[in-house]
């Protein structure tokens, strides 16, 4: 009893910062959300078998372009955190990451328009319905990520002088990495797989 009292240091704070813990819990919940969607996709796909691949296939080139944009945004976000840790400003990298994420969303919108012109809609087939469900759910998360990054830039989280904001910057970029990781799964299942 007495040893527990002596070894626990109240002054040093909790072992994990509360913001970091909250972010990981949030991402865990988000993983469950996407896990549910992907499980549903797998079940539909397994039942459809041969009929699934008939007709138009999403353009792999567009998928790769969108991947490149998100990966570049992740790298830029990582650069912002690293710059901040070195004691220099990460704001410019933060804005670059935001711009790349914004271009990703524009590309996705253009892809939807192209698909619409080709006569594809969510009602076309089970396959396209699930394509829209997954990409829209992900796109919404990317939009949240964009707003998060812009908010970080606006509140000066990248600047050295704003002392308490370093954690906030890391959490925002962590979310960006998460959105990036989910996209890789979507790319593999929706664009690459035939």
């Amino acid at each position: 009893m007495s040893t527990a009292e002596t070894t626990f240091q109240y002054d040093s704070g909790p072992p994990v910062e509360s913001g970091r813990l909250a972010t990981w819990l949030f991402l865990a919940a988000e993983s469950l959300f996407f896990g549910g969607l992907l499980s549903a996709w797998l079940v539909l796909r397994a039942q459809a078998q041969d009929t699934w691949s008939a007709g138009l296939h999403p353009s792999l080139g567009v998928g790769m372009l969108m991947t490149a944009l998100l990966v570049a945004a992740s790298v830029a976000g990582h650069g912002a955190v690293a710059a901040r840790a070195r004691g220099t400003s990460g704001t410019r990298r933060l804005l670059l990451a935001s711009a790349l994420v914004a271009v990703f969303l524009v590309t996705q919108a253009l892809e939807y328009r192209h698909l619409h012109d080709e006569g594809v809609s969510p009602a076309t087939s089970l396959r396209w319905g699930s394509f829209y469900a997954l990409t829209l759910a992900h796109g919404f998360h990317v939009l949240v990520g964009l707003l998060w990054l812009l908010w970080l830039a606006a509140t000066g989280a990248g600047r050295v002088s704003v002392a308490p904001a370093r954690g906030a910057l890391e959490y925002g970029v962590l979310y960006l990495h998460f959105v990036d990781a989910v996209w890789f799964v979507l790319l593999g299942l929706l664009y690459v797989l035939r």
């Binding site: 797998l42 796909r45 397994a46 890789f184 799964v185 593999g188 299942l189 797989l193």
Partner: peptide, 8 residues
């Protein structure tokens, strides 16, 4: 799909 998810 199993391969894709597993490889990722």
């Amino acid at each position: 799909p199993i391969y894709v998810l597993g490889a990722l």
